[in-house]
């Protein structure tokens, strides 16, 4: 099963290598990884999506907590959480295709961030499912390039 882990770490050199090395050294998978500084100086938040059964996820969480540079690990799969990912797409939009692509842009609430005679660069935010749906829809027009951030996630304020 897919899990989203939110990991609060010391923002110091080598931390990413420690986390990534833990996954590779113990044979775990990283599906996506995102890291950026938090509001507290000296701390960074990592969001990792990974796949594994309960026993593997338990080990991953424990091993991450064991790293001396880790302050906190939360498995957001266990709580109510919002998840978002951002994607940039370079889509073929020549001639008659253009209007159709722009209609999809509308439906998916994408933003057109760059325009040229034969292609568009789109920006879109959403869950992984939404982005995947958009990619499959646009594929018929020709996607030239994709850049995705990987998921970021946050627990909801109201938990049951």
């Amino acid at each position: 099963m897919r899990h989203i882990l939110s990991i609060l770490v010391e923002n110091e050199p080598g931390v990413l290598a420690r986390v990534a090395g833990l996954f590779s050294g113990r044979g775990y998978n990283i599906e996506s990884l995102n890291v950026a500084p938090t509001l507290t100086e000296g701390l960074s938040m990592m969001t990792i999506t990974t796949i594994g059964d309960e026993a593997i996820i338990e080990q991953i969480v424990k091993q991450l907590r064991k790293l001396v540079t880790t302050l906190k690990v939360v498995d957001l799969t266990d709580v109510k959480a919002v998840e978002r990912e951002m994607m940039l797409l370079r889509v073929d939009a020549e001639g008659s295709k253009r209007a159709e692509v722009l209609r999809i842009v509308d439906i998916f609430r994408c933003k057109v961030v760059d325009v040229s005679p034969d292609e568009l660069v789109l920006e879109v935010t959403g869950t992984q499912d939404k982005l995947t749906a958009l990619v499959s829809l646009l594929q018929r027009y020709g996607i030239k390039e994709v850049a995705r951030t990987g998921s970021v996630a946050m627990r909801r304020g109201m938990q049951e």
């Binding site: 050199p13 080598g14 290598a17 420690r18 090395g21 833990l22 050294g25 001396v68 540079t69």
Partner: peptide, 14 residues
Amino acid sequence: IVGITRSCTKHNYL
């Protein structure tokens, strides 16, 4: 050596 020993030390420093 910090990179080499990352997986066989409890922690390491440069």
